[in-house]
Design a protein around this nucleic acid. Sequence first.
DNA 1: TCTTAAAATGTGTACGTACACAAAATTAAA
DNA 2: TTTAATTTTGTGTACGTACACATTTTAAGA
Lengths: 346, 346
Amino acid sequence: MTIKEIARRANVSLGTVDRVIHNRGKVSKEKKEKILKIMEEVDYKPNIYARGLVLNKSYTIAALMPEFEVGEYWEVPSRGVGNAANSLSQFGIKVKYFYFDQNNIDSFIKQSNKLIESKPDGVILAPVINFEAVKFCGKLRKLDIPFSIIDSNIENSGAICFIGQDSIQSGRLAAKLLSTSTKGRGKLLIVSIKNNENHNKTLQKRIEGFNDYLLESSNLDDIHVEEVIINQRETNWKNSLETILKKKHPDGVYVPSSKVHFVAEIIKKNMFESKLVGNDLIKNNYYYIESGIIDYVIGQRPETQGYLALENFYKYLVTNQKVRSIHNLPLDIITKENLIFYKTNF
Amino acid sequence: MTIKEIARRANVSLGTVDRVIHNRGKVSKEKKEKILKIMEEVDYKPNIYARGLVLNKSYTIAALMPEFEVGEYWEVPSRGVGNAANSLSQFGIKVKYFYFDQNNIDSFIKQSNKLIESKPDGVILAPVINFEAVKFCGKLRKLDIPFSIIDSNIENSGAICFIGQDSIQSGRLAAKLLSTSTKGRGKLLIVSIKNNENHNKTLQKRIEGFNDYLLESSNLDDIHVEEVIINQRETNWKNSLETILKKKHPDGVYVPSSKVHFVAEIIKKNMFESKLVGNDLIKNNYYYIESGIIDYVIGQRPETQGYLALENFYKYLVTNQKVRSIHNLPLDIITKENLIFYKTNF
DNA sequence: TCTTAAAATGTGTACGTACACAAAATTAAA
DNA sequence: TTTAATTTTGTGTACGTACACATTTTAAGA
């Protein structure tokens, strides 16, 4: 079903139908209604090939996210964006990366300014430095540049969509897995490993969910929870962590971030019997899951997050489809036995 | 970079470049080489819009899979195929379903013949009746109709791809989850619910994996496993199942199929304390997971299986891309706390 | 009624590719 | 050398849409 055929049926020219389709006005009421009715009846869908051919636009999407070392978390969403860029290149979608140091506000500001200078058609933002990210969203709104947010959300940011995870539920799930593994009793330790003073929303929410679950679940008396905070900027932080673990001798440890491998390293070295639950299947964690030192990690499909973020821009800019405004990805439970299926290219 | 531009640079006409691109011959050696060299240099990629517009082909893919009631397993892959059909319709991909009764070989034969008569451009096959499916693959090969297999594989079938799961690993994972839930000890029961005499490969492999895991894991002495087979064709099979569960009083039950809800129903009714692990997040299981009667189900993304099966045909037929020959989807661990994220439209 | 402006409608071209067909160049045969 | 056959090369059209521009119709004003 083509514009031509609709024009024929409505006894008008192509141009008139075209004006109706694009709402360009300058069409009499009666003809407009007639055309709309026919379009409805035949369920007209524009030929995307013809449309793509004639429009032949190309879009540059800028991705503003933390820089990373190989094996660290942000490598994965970044790769997801890259994969999407690859498969969408034929549709004229291009990506430009702007990496910032997540422990350095100036770096964020500098990169975000560079980004704006490059005048992208869209922005993918990882708001790990929350306060600055909020300001940046304001700038984008003023410039009328559409943007999407990945990882952790900013309320009322004006983004076309958010793609991330439900962090509270992630913490709850961790609590369930860890308490089941310790047979519903014993001493649990939450280890927060930070390398800056920033208020980390994700970490906080996960811990909140973790504690909530334990409070709500029945046999509270048998379980004791304690939290320790490790600052990676301190020299010898690894040693202090080791000392703490030796002293506390917990039955289960929860690390509410991808940095669980640091704890796994210590557990392995000292041959502790502790059960261990953390987040994210990154390269640094892989071996420890495989060997059973990390019992479970909770994954949130970071690669898919990156992929969807770009794909959504394709939908939004190229095909003019509506995009889901919030997309919480599944919390995958990853353990020795299903590890292999979640492995992507490290 | 267009054909026109290549033609200009090579000092030939569009037609000559076209012949080189499509290997239609009738081009002198020197010109051919010159054109190929230029194409290489500029990394020519055809404009998919223009190509799609001019080709404007449409492909009909036939899906041969078991019929189902609402809430049963095969509803989900079927919906996945439908979703893909929806988003690929603009690329000229259409689907025609042929449903058969998986307990009736004649039904399979009848439907497969109807399918062949419809002369599809590709076939998606669910080989639940293994022996007949093998014969059917032979027919498709002779007719040169490309086909893909979902759910369980047929070795050397000639399919362009297989999309399914690793059933042995699924069983192993179930064993881990169930034994962890029963604190590593007690009496475990495997309940196989069948409604035909067919040799069900998937079921068998899952049980194999389940037993293997328990044999390999350390504290074997504390765990005892038994298997019971329930035939749904017997009248009062539900009552017999209930009687068995009452008599055996297992600490954990593994149902290596989506029919775990039948056991859940009995456990709920009798308020047993049994831990329960099964397969597949289908509608019939949802409530029991939500209320914690089923502790874990292992999902294998059946909707994605269906989706990928069709999408692969798009890649194969429309874009001429290579497709992965084996695609084992992740074994998702689904439990009360992450249930919501795996829920699709029931 | 005539003129003019505004609104409505129609027409033509471009996008890049595939393919049928026409034309030119080359080779073979007489 | 001329003619025919064959190979090589070039041209034209279609695909369905978007958009600029041309033309026609209608309404408003004198």
